[in-house]
Structure formats: structure tokens, C-alpha cells
């Protein structure tokens, strides 16, 4: 590591030059920025599709958990088992198991990552949505049913729209967590953003590339947060009427 402090004392121009040197070797030498861009692309693809898969799994599980009342119903049992197993084990362990045995025959690493992170996220999302649905007053369901709507229609038209508003902040939190959790994908040689930084550092022996990777994650999370708060504000408009 360069002695930044010693250089700062010597003057600003020198510090600037050394910063440029660091950036140059982290990004420009051997076109290393290509690794970062490719890593960013893979991270975004994995996060986006894992998010969709997680939402789908989570929604189905949540509806099962809320609507099935009989404790002996195998569907409820399965849904709870799923949540217990997936939430009870680390995502990186699940990723390794999926890579080396469940999807052993697949060559598509990105697909493996999407499925591993999607399955993982689904368990958390299901609990978030379940909480949201249960926070909607029972009176709403009763009112829907007494107006002649079916159970499914009441859920879709009355309960879920109200639940969405309650769960949005926690769901946003889960998405941010998911984005950062994909950083363990490099464990099984998936070239995500973190792996790109790691590969560059292994060549330069200088952690500058990791600072850049951290900055990219930070920008992504700040962007995602802004997007979510925009959605929250949109949904809150109805409350003001």
C-alpha cells in the first residue's frame, strides 16, 4: 500500500498523481475496467431475476400461510418447512449445494445464482408479505366477503393492495440485502462485481479496486433507496385524500 499520508504532506499535486496511479492500475492497465463492468452486469442480472423469483415464491408462500387454517394441511406444512430450512442455513452454503449437487449438470452459472438467491430471498419475502397481509384489519376481509366477493377476489382486490403499502419498506430492505448478498457468488467462480474487484486486487496487490467496487455498490443501493421512497410516496398520496 502506498503511504498516502507521507505524500499528502509533500503537497496536493503529488497526492493527486498517486491517486491517479492507483486508479490507473486498478482500471486502465490491461483494460481492467472491463472486468468491473462485466461484474456489474452479472450482479445486476442476478439481483434482478433473483428478486422476481423471490417475489413470486414469497407471494405464493405467504398466501398459503395466511389462507390455510388447518394445521394438518400439507401445503402449510411444506411452506413452513421451506421457510425454516432456507432461513436456517446461510445463503453461501445453499449456493454451493445448488452448484455442486442440485444443479450439477447446469453450465449456466448465472442461472444457478439466480435460482440460489431467488430461493433464499423467497423465504424472507414470504414472511414479510405474511406480516403485511395479517396487518390488514380482519374487518376488511369480512366486509369484502359480505359484499359477495369470493375469498380470492377479496385477497386480490382488497387485502393485497393494502398490504403492499405496509410491506414496501421491509421489502425494500430485503432487496438491498439481496443485492449485497449476491457478492458471495464468487465462491463458485461466478464473475460478479465483488469477484471482479478480487481478481484485480490479486494482480495489483493494491486494494484500490475494492474501494471502487464498494463505491459502485453504494451508488446502486442509494439509487434503489431513492426508487423505493418514490414508490412509497406515490402510494401515500391516497392517504392524504
Amino acid at each position: 500500500m502506498r503511504p498516502l499520508l507521507a505524500i499528502i504532506i509533500k503537497g496536493k499535486e503529488v497526492m493527486f498523481e498517486s491517486l491517479l496511479d492507483h486508479l490507473y492500475s486498478a482500471l486502465i492497465t490491461d483494460s481492467r475496467y472491463v472486468l468491473i463492468l462485466r461484474g456489474l452486469r452479472n450482479t445486476l442480472i442476478i439481483t434482478f431475476f433473483a428478486l422476481l423469483l423471490g417475489l413470486a415464491i414469497g407471494l405464493i408462500l405467504a398466501i398459503i400461510k395466511v389462507t390455510v387454517h388447518s394445521r394438518r394441511n400439507p401445503l402449510l406444512w411444506l411452506a413452513n418447512l421451506y421457510t425454516t430450512i432456507i432461513r436456517g442455513t446461510p445463503v453461501v452454503v445453499q449456493l454451493i449445494i445448488i452448484n455442486t449437487s442440485i444443479m450439477a449438470q447446469s453450465n449456466n452459472k448465472i442461472l444457478i445464482a439466480v435460482i440460489a438467491f431467488g430461493i433464499n430471498s423467497g423465504a424472507y419475502v414470504s414472511e414479510i408479505i405474511r406480516g403485511g397481509i395479517q396487518s390488514v384489519d380482519r374487518g376488511q376481509t369480512e366486509a369484502g366477503r359480505s359484499l359477495g366477493l369470493t375469498g380470492a377476489m377479496t385477497m386480490r382486490l382488497i387485502v393485497l393492495p393494502q398490504a403492499v403499502k405496509t410491506v414496501l419498506p421491509s421489502l425494500g430492505n430485503e432487496f438491498i440485502t439481496l443485492l449485497k448478498e449476491t457478492s458471495v457468488a464468487g465462491y463458485v467462480a461466478i464473475s460478479d462485481l465483488t469477484k471482479a474487484g478480487d481478481t484485480i486486487v490479486s494482480r495489483t496487490f493494491d486494494p484500490t479496486a475494492m474501494y471502487l467496487v464498494a463505491l459502485v455498490y453504494l451508488v446502486l443501493v442509494v439509487g434503489l433507496t431513492a426508487l423505493l421512497s418514490l414508490m412509497e410516496r406515490r402510494l401515500a398520496r391516497n392517504d392524504l385524500r
Binding site: D30, S31, R32, R38, D198
Partner: peptide, 10 residues
């Protein structure tokens, strides 16, 4: 240096 055909494992 930017090949996609080298898979880097832990």
C-alpha cells in the same frame, strides 16, 4: 487479461 474462459474459484 479479461478472458471469460478462466473460472476463478475460492
Amino acid at each position: 487479461p479479461n478472458t471469460e474462459e478462466v473460472a476463478r474459484y475460492k
